[in-house]
Amino acid sequence: MDLERFRERFGDKVKIDKNILTLADKKDLIRVVKFVSKYFDVLYMLIVVHRPPKFELNYIFSRYQDQEIIQIKVEISDKENIASISNVFKSAEWEEREAYDMFGIVFRDHPDLRRILLPEDWPGHPMRKDFVVTEEIKHWTGLDLKF
């Protein structure tokens, strides 16, 4: 897909490489995503990669009429939060909940941000690279029970 229109619209706020758009600043995410929603139908995947101390979020969008996909990369650091795109793409709701559940990233303005795969009161965010199985977690999962 020709990403020239993105370059025209956003200038140097984005860096384009094949079909990967890298945003320079996470504050532009909502504007870029709204522009994407004119051409793409649905959020296909949301991949969070933890390269300590930063998180790299990859949003992959796809559409139904052909096979084009576009990938948007944003970097945030630990303790920062990022705007939620579930108002623009409804399918992002559960993906962002899973990102919060596994990595601890807080999405602002999310309608229902709570844990999805793990129980509500589980301590910690397991997919982070600095996750350690502590005594509390061993007791939670029953790994320390002796029968």
Binding site: D41, V42, L43, Y44, S62, Y64, D66, Q67, K90, S91
Partner: peptide
Amino acid sequence: KKYGITGPNMRASGIERDLRRS
């Protein structure tokens, strides 16, 4: 289209799309 459903559920609603073809 809102939720990104694919596969036979999508094809039963009239959208013709199959990765093996496209």
